[in-house]
């Protein structure tokens, strides 16, 4: 059994969002970088649990990114996993990134590929689907539960207003969200061990860049809150009806 977990690096959830260079670049000063929460808490931890249950499992992590992603990759290795692969490029195009992951996946013959639901900076929710298509594998998105029985996976995924339970034979690509696993804190042994785990750097394969970011912007500031005294709570309903015209 071989599992590949896709790990991306994102700004901390409380990072100040600002742009430089005439609104074409994210302002990185003072930004703390973390493992994308969906990748860490759900995809990686669930994969680690599968390996704990079946120690013969081989668990690899992959990141497509520059050398500046290495501290985040080591942090992921401190949680678990046998080795990490970094494909050395700074492209932000989803198709280009997915092509790199698909190539590594093809070479490594993985049975199971986990991604996060989405990156919290790009909010694409698209790498998993692209990788699955490039590998002609089934894709189960927005998974909240994952159980393995031999080579058959039973997966619960989110649908509008509820959930769906499905069954699929490996190999499969799964995008993971809340419910898959509980967040873990790396222990000292993990942190020490991560330093000596292999982190292979590969050069990217040729692939198309289908999109580019032209500019960034911030939403307009709110006008400010209109406060209604608690005694006149019913007034809120009148304002929503007459002023905001929303109910």
């Amino acid at each position: 059994m071989k599992i590949l977990v896709c790990i991306s690096k994102t700004p901390d959830t409380t990072a100040k969002i600002a742009f430089t260079d005439n609104n074409t670049k994210f302002a990185q000063d003072n930004v703390q970088w973390i493992i994308n929460p969906y990748d860490e808490w759900y995809a990686l931890v669930r994969a680690i649990e599968l390996k704990e249950k079946d120690p013969s499992t081989v668990l690899h992590l992959i990141n497509v990114g520059g050398a500046d992603a290495e501290p985040v990759i080591r942090k992921a290795l401190a949680l678990g996993g046998d080795e990490a692969i970094r494909v050395n490029t700074t492209s932000t195009d989803s198709f280009y990134i997915a092509s790199q992951i698909a190539e590594v996946a093809r070479q490594g013959n993985y049975d199971l590929i986990f991604t996060g639901k989405e990156t919290i900076d790009f909010n694409g929710s698209s790498i998993g689907g692209m990788v699955a298509e490039l590998l002609d594998m089934p894709y189960v998105s927005l998974a909240i539960k994952f159980e393995l029985n031999g080579t058959t996976a039973t997966i619960t995924r989110e649908i509008e207003g509820g959930e769906e339970i499905c069954e699929v034979n490996l190999p499969v690509v799964v995008s993971c969200q809340k419910g898959m696993a509980e967040q873990r804190i790396p222990n000292m042994k993990g942190i020490m061990g991560a330093r000596t785990k292999p982190l292979k750097v590969l050069e990217p394969v040729a692939a198309d860049t289908l999109t580019t970011v032209s500019s960034f912007g911030l939403p307009p500031a709110k006008a400010g809150v209109k406060l209604i005294p608690a005694e006149n709570a019913a007034d809120l309903v009148r304002l929503l009806h007459e002023e905001a015209k929303i109910i």
Partner: peptide
């Protein structure tokens, strides 16, 4: 639509047709 189904199909189709995708 970038809803549950759209999030599953649009990226696959993008990769299949080599089409640039803007999700969301």
């Amino acid at each position: 639509s970038n809803n549950v189904d759209g999030k599953a199909i649009a990226p696959r189709l993008a990769a299949r047709l080599r089409a640039g995708l803007v999700p969301g």
